[in-house]
Amino acid sequence: MCLAVPAKVISLEGEDGVVDLGGNRLSVRMALTPGIRVDQWVLVHAGFSIAKIETSDALETWGYLKACYAGDATGLDRDADEMVASSRVAAEGTAR
């Protein structure tokens, strides 16, 4: 059992942190990894960070995820970012 994913700490406020997982941001309780700092990598499970990860190890997994599917070769993620940017502009123009 126990799905856990590596993520980078983006911000910290006491024991609460926000981590980034490939553009997805999650609120995570950091109580199980005392002393963690912004920009370090943690293993996240069920809304908690359960271990600190050396950056190179996290990037290795990240690298695997990247290599697993097509996309990078075609500049897909850069395009996706553009799409997001343009739809955000569109969204801001609406009543929302």
Partner: peptide
């Protein structure tokens, strides 16, 4: 084809 964001999510 998948974006990194979707893969990770």
């Amino acid at each position: 084809p998948m974006t990194i964001g979707a893969r990770y999510a």
